[in-house]
Amino acid sequence: MNAKTLLIVVTACLGLAACGGVDPNSPLGKRQAIFKDMLRTSEDLGGMLRGRINFDEQRFATGATKLDQLSRQPWQHFPQVQEGDADSAARDEVWQREERFQTLVRELEASTGQLASAAQARPLTAQSVAPLVQKVEDSCEACHKEFRAY
């Protein structure tokens, strides 16, 4: 393949790659960004409890507070009426069973609030917060099982 042909192929591939994706300013883009930040934060907390990352009291407490703040944000980006978001991982049931969805949202917010409060106590140990992290993880999983399309 000569250089000119290669340049055309690379340019075409880059052009096609730029066409797709989610608008970061759309409701879908905003909630996906928050959910990704929640995932990164919770993975760090879980990593400290499971020995993948060294347990650090201050870093854990900061992460728990951040997770609590994040857990209250994505819901405002679920429009009242379902939009035609082909890239969304939300099932139709989010809009069809809104009361149940809101119940699970409140359970997550309560569990992250408990974790953030407990993480302020000193000395802070992995053993003292492990059940609360598990409760947060269980809250996430419960909502995903009912409302997330994999």
Score class of each variant (00 low, 15 high):
Ala126Gly: 15
Ala18Asp: 04
Asp138Pro: 03
Leu124His: 05
Asn25Phe: 08
Pro24Ala: 07
Ile53Lys: 13
Leu45His: 02
Arg72Phe: 03
Thr103Arg: 14
Arg31Trp: 03
Ala33Cys: 09
Ala130Ser: 15
Glu83Trp: 02
Leu16Trp: 05
Val22Phe: 02
Gln96Ser: 14
Val81Cys: 11
Thr65Ala: 09
Ala119Tyr: 02
Trp75Asp: 06
Phe147Arg: 07
Ala18Phe: 11
Asn25Ala: 12
Gly29Pro: 00
Met1Phe: 08
Gly29Tyr: 01
Pro74Glu: 01
Cys13Trp: 09
Leu49Val: 04
Gln102Ile: 12
Tyr150His: 14
Asp85Tyr: 11
Val133Glu: 14
Ser111Trp: 00
Asp44Ala: 13
Thr65Met: 11
Cys140Tyr: 01
Val81Thr: 15
Trp75Asn: 05
Met1Gly: 10
Arg148Asp: 01
Thr65Pro: 03
Leu45Glu: 02
Ser88Lys: 02
Arg91Pro: 03
Arg40Lys: 10
Thr41Phe: 01
Leu67Gln: 02
Leu28Lys: 13
Ala149Phe: 04
Gln76Leu: 13
Ala126Asn: 01
Trp75His: 01
Gln58Ile: 03
Val129His: 04
Trp75Pro: 06
Leu6Pro: 01
Ser111Tyr: 02
Ala86Ile: 08
Gly51Glu: 10
Glu43Tyr: 07
Gly113Phe: 03
Ala33Trp: 08
Glu109Ile: 10
Asp56Tyr: 07
Ala3Phe: 02
Trp95Tyr: 02
Leu124Glu: 03
Arg59Cys: 08
Asn2Met: 06
Pro27Phe: 03
Ala119Asn: 15
Leu39Tyr: 09
Val10Trp: 01
Pro74Ala: 12
Arg52Trp: 01
Glu43Gly: 06
Gln69Thr: 12
Ile53His: 12
Asn25Arg: 13
Ala119Arg: 04
Pro24Asn: 11
Leu70Ala: 06
Val129Arg: 08
Gln73Val: 08
Gly47Glu: 01
Gln114Met: 03
Glu107Gly: 10
Leu28Ile: 10
Gly21Trp: 04
Leu14Ser: 05
Gln80Tyr: 04
Leu115Cys: 04
Gly46Tyr: 06
Gly113Asn: 13
Phe60Met: 01
Ala126Tyr: 05
Pro74Cys: 04
Val136Asn: 05
Arg50Lys: 15
Ala121Gly: 10
Phe35His: 01
Ala61Asn: 09
Gln127Val: 13
Glu137Tyr: 06
Gly63Thr: 06
Ala64Cys: 06
Glu83His: 05
Asp85Val: 02
Glu98Pro: 08
Ser111Glu: 10
Ala17Tyr: 05
Lys4Val: 08
Asp87Glu: 12
Gly84Arg: 14
Gly46Ile: 09
Arg106Thr: 13
Asn25Glu: 14
Ala130Gly: 09
Val105Met: 08
Ala89Gln: 09
Val9Tyr: 01
His77Leu: 06
Asn25Cys: 05
Ile8Glu: 00
Thr62Trp: 07
Ile34Leu: 01
Arg50Val: 00
Gln80Phe: 12
Tyr150Trp: 11
Thr41Leu: 00
Thr5Ile: 06
Phe35Ala: 00
Ala3His: 00
Leu39Ser: 15
